[in-house]
Amino acid sequence: MALALAAGGAAHAAGSRQLATGGASTIEGGAGGGLVPWAAITGYGAREEIGATAFATRINTGDYRLDVQGAAVGLFNRIELSASRQELDLVALGPALGLPGAHLRQHVIGAKVRLAGDVLYTRMPQIALGVQYKKQQDFALARALGARDDADVDVYLSATKVFLAGVGGYNAFLSGTARLTRANETGLLGFGGEGRNGRRVALEASGGVLLSRRFAIGAEYRGKSGSLDAVRESAWRDLFVAWFPNRHVSVVVAYADLGTVATLPDQTGWYLSVQGAF
């Protein structure tokens, strides 16, 4: 969820790029923030190196609990391949629908390629093009709400840049993403709908400040515009703190505001993600 800058350091087994320049892991598996992808390539592998990451994330609002596990590999700081498994536990909504223990599962397979620039070493931002194939595994509820399909592909374009001494003398970063999608609640409620079945553009952004070599703070925004007439969909936001103790471990804690999710309003709660890099 945070992209930071460390001023030097020797190469480690995880790779030779600067500390935290691979970001953290998103809920869909690739490098970036917790809620949104960035142009960064996962891991610490430089031009002639391969880096890999694995992660586990939980978001708990009380009414819902989202658990995600996944892994990604970065090839030569150019190509990223990722996979993740999401499971949304309908803690409150399931019993209300007469479905205690109900949950929604989704599998995501992603690929990203760096097209131009570098997050640190070029004046222009790093720009990357990504695709995510999403397959919803429990489609009955989504179909009942009007979703058209249980699988689809998101396409996104991201730009990410670190600014040295950008905010009050501290290093800072900004990232923006434009996503072409048909997903309802990122795909957990299927894709498309009766009234609006075409793809639409959703905008996403994140930014923050590195307070030291190992700590960063910031915020994220993920715009969403679902196709289901029966279910209002809100933009997602969070405020985060990220800790990078070394090249092998990162921990992100956030306060997330998911708005209205599947008819239940005021979905706020805590986000925790732990990533290992190899």
Rank of each mutant, 00 (worst) to 15 (best):
D150F: 07
F163P: 04
V153S: 05
F139Q: 15
D154Y: 03
R179A: 06
G130K: 12
L141P: 07
A165R: 15
D150G: 13
L145F: 12
K161V: 02
V162P: 01
A165Y: 13
Y156E: 10
A142F: 12
R179I: 07
Q137I: 14
F163S: 04
A142H: 10
L145R: 10
F173C: 00
Q136A: 14
A165E: 15
T160H: 01
A147Q: 09
L145Y: 14
V162S: 01
D152Q: 11
Q137P: 02
G166C: 12
T177A: 07
S175M: 00
N171Q: 10
G146S: 04
D138E: 15
Y133S: 02
D138P: 06
A140L: 11
G169N: 14
L141A: 09
G146H: 01
D154C: 08
Y133T: 06
A178L: 01
F139I: 11
V162L: 03
K161A: 10
Y156P: 02
V155K: 09
D138R: 10
S175E: 00
D154P: 02
T160R: 02
F163A: 12
T160M: 02
V131N: 07
A151W: 07
L174C: 00
D138M: 07
G176T: 01
D154A: 04
S158K: 04
D150C: 05
A144T: 07
V131R: 10
G130E: 04
G168A: 13
G168L: 11
G166D: 10
Y133M: 05
Q132Y: 03
G168W: 12
S158P: 12
L164E: 03
G130M: 05
D154K: 08
Q136W: 10
V167Q: 07
K135R: 15
G176S: 01
A140F: 06
T160G: 01
S158V: 05
Q136P: 05
A178Q: 03
S175C: 01
A140E: 09
V162D: 01
Y133F: 14
S158G: 09
T160N: 02
L174N: 00
S158W: 02
F139A: 10
